[in-house]
Lab assay of single mutants.
Amino acid sequence: SEFSSRSGYGEYVQQTLQPGMRVRMLDDYEEISAGDEGEFRQSNNGIPPVQVFWQSTGRTYWVHWHMLEILGP
């Protein structure tokens, strides 16, 4: 990996993601499973900070930056 740390990767995702971009989950996290795909909606200063609309659940759920792989527009 070109990223030395999880936080470095998270910063990359945070700087790159734009609303509407497709993402894939890298880790299991509460209701969301690794491999689930969705659409980035928004972020804020909460914890976790990233709101994604997940195809698997049909609704939005908040996750962490480093848990997401960017699939593209």
Rank of each mutant, 00 (worst) to 15 (best):
P73M: 05
D27Q: 13
R6Q: 14
Y9L: 10
F40M: 05
L26N: 15
T57L: 13
Y61D: 04
E39N: 03
G8V: 13
Y29P: 03
T16C: 07
F40G: 00
Y29D: 02
E31P: 01
V52Q: 06
I70R: 04
S7C: 09
T16G: 07
T60M: 13
Q18D: 07
S7D: 04
F40A: 05
D36W: 11
T57Y: 14
Q18W: 01
R6W: 15
P73C: 07
D36K: 01
F53M: 06
E39R: 01
V13T: 03
Y12R: 04
E37R: 02
N44I: 08
R41S: 02
M67E: 00
N44H: 14
P19L: 11
I32C: 08
R22W: 11
T60D: 06
G10H: 05
L17Y: 03
T60L: 14
E11G: 11
R59G: 09
Y12G: 08
G46V: 15
S1Y: 15
R59E: 05
G10P: 09
V13Q: 01
G38C: 07
P19Q: 09
Y29R: 04
V52G: 03
V50T: 11
S7K: 14
N44K: 15
R6K: 12
Q55V: 13
D27R: 12
V13M: 15
V50H: 02
L71G: 01
S33A: 15
W54C: 07
R59T: 12
Y61G: 13
S7R: 12
R6G: 08
H64L: 01
G72L: 04
P73T: 08
R59C: 12
S56M: 05
M25T: 01
E69L: 04
F40P: 03
Y9W: 05
H66S: 04
I47F: 11
D27Y: 14
Y12S: 11
G38Q: 00
D28L: 08
M21G: 03
H66D: 13
S1P: 03
S5L: 11
D27W: 11
H64P: 12
W62H: 15
D27P: 01
P19K: 02
M21R: 00
M67D: 12
W65H: 05
I70F: 03
S5R: 11
W65L: 00
G58S: 06
A34W: 02
H66C: 05
T57E: 08
N45R: 10
N45L: 09
M21V: 04
S43L: 00
R24F: 03
Y29N: 03
F3H: 14
P73D: 12
M25V: 01
S56N: 13
W62N: 15
Y29H: 05
G35M: 05
R41T: 05
I47A: 12
L71Q: 00
D36Y: 00
Q55P: 13
V13C: 12
F53R: 14
S43R: 02
Y12L: 12
P73N: 08
R22I: 07
G38M: 02
M67R: 01
G8M: 14
Y12D: 04
G20F: 04
V63H: 03
M25A: 11
W54P: 02
R22F: 02
S43C: 06
H64A: 01
